[in-house]
Simulated scan of single mutants.
Amino acid sequence: MVSLPEELEAREAAARRRVEELRSEIAELTLRLEAAQEDLSRWEITRETVTKVLAELSAAEPDAEAKAPVEPELKSPPHGAGVVMVPPWREGLAATVLPDVYRDIMEVLADAPGPLQAKQIVPRIGLPATAGKIEGTRAKLKRLVERGWLIENAPGRFALARRDAGIDPLNPR
């Protein structure tokens, strides 16, 4: 006969396993959502660029007033789908939960001898060193600082937030 404490322990263990399974599913869905949002962003930028180029070409024609394309109403990207793409850092949480580009940033900073600026990180993660890519990366760095993954020990200079010398934030324990 099973005792009540043993039965409670068994049920608690089953609940704990289910929580871990759900956390794993959330991490996978988070990665998929990040990729889908990046794809959506690229399509929106492409559409906006084509609309702008067509408008400029039409303006250059003599009868531009009659042929100017009507610019479609631009939809703003969805705000907050209820998913935190960069979770706040907590004890035991590894950088593997972060979206790919954030993990790349963390790896670059882990390999760096000291703090780096966004313009130094961009080429190391495989992006062209354009103003837009640098500013986008700077925004990601600031987000990582806000969530406790990085520190900004001087304005514009980022480094890993090392809470414990024995813990590698890029690899789980």
Rank of each mutant, 00 (worst) to 15 (best):
S58H: 12
G136I: 00
W149K: 05
F158H: 07
I121G: 03
R138Q: 12
G92P: 06
D104N: 09
V108K: 09
V53N: 08
L31S: 15
A60V: 07
S76V: 06
V122M: 01
N171P: 00
N171H: 11
E146C: 04
K52Y: 11
T49F: 06
T49N: 13
V101P: 07
D63M: 11
A60L: 13
R147M: 14
P62I: 06
D39G: 08
L40A: 14
L40H: 11
A159E: 09
V2Y: 01
L4W: 00
S58I: 03
R23T: 07
A35K: 10
G114H: 12
R90F: 04
A81C: 13
E107Q: 14
R47C: 07
R90G: 02
A15T: 05
G80A: 08
R23D: 13
P113R: 08
A94R: 07
V83L: 13
N171R: 14
L8H: 01
V53W: 11
G80F: 08
V86P: 01
G82L: 03
W43Q: 15
R17T: 02
E6S: 04
H79G: 09
T46L: 10
K52C: 10
A15I: 01
V84G: 06
A64Q: 08
L74W: 09
L4S: 01
A66F: 05
P123A: 04
P88I: 02
P172F: 10
T49I: 01
K75V: 10
A10P: 00
L170D: 05
I125G: 08
R16W: 03
R124I: 01
A112I: 03
G80H: 14
A55R: 11
A36L: 12
E65G: 07
L40W: 09
T96P: 05
K67I: 14
A10D: 01
A13Q: 05
L144T: 07
E9F: 00
A66C: 04
P123H: 04
A10N: 02
E152M: 03
A159V: 00
M106E: 07
I26H: 05
A95E: 09
P78H: 06
G114N: 13
V19W: 03
I167H: 06
L74K: 13
K67F: 02
A66L: 12
K52T: 15
G92C: 09
K75P: 12
G148I: 00
L127A: 01
E44N: 14
G136T: 04
T130D: 05
R23L: 14
R103N: 04
A118D: 03
E28I: 08
P123R: 05
M1F: 05
P113I: 00
D111L: 10
A118P: 07
V2H: 00
P128G: 03
R17K: 09
E65L: 11
G156K: 02
R157G: 01
E56Q: 14
E56T: 11
A131E: 15
A161R: 13
V19S: 03
A161H: 15
T46R: 10
E12W: 00
A159L: 01
L8P: 01
A68H: 13
Y102L: 08
I151H: 06
G114C: 08
L4R: 03
V108A: 12
A129S: 14
I26N: 04
G132D: 11
L144C: 09
R47T: 10
D63G: 08
L33R: 15
T49L: 11
A13K: 04
A81D: 15
T51M: 05
V84S: 14
E48D: 15
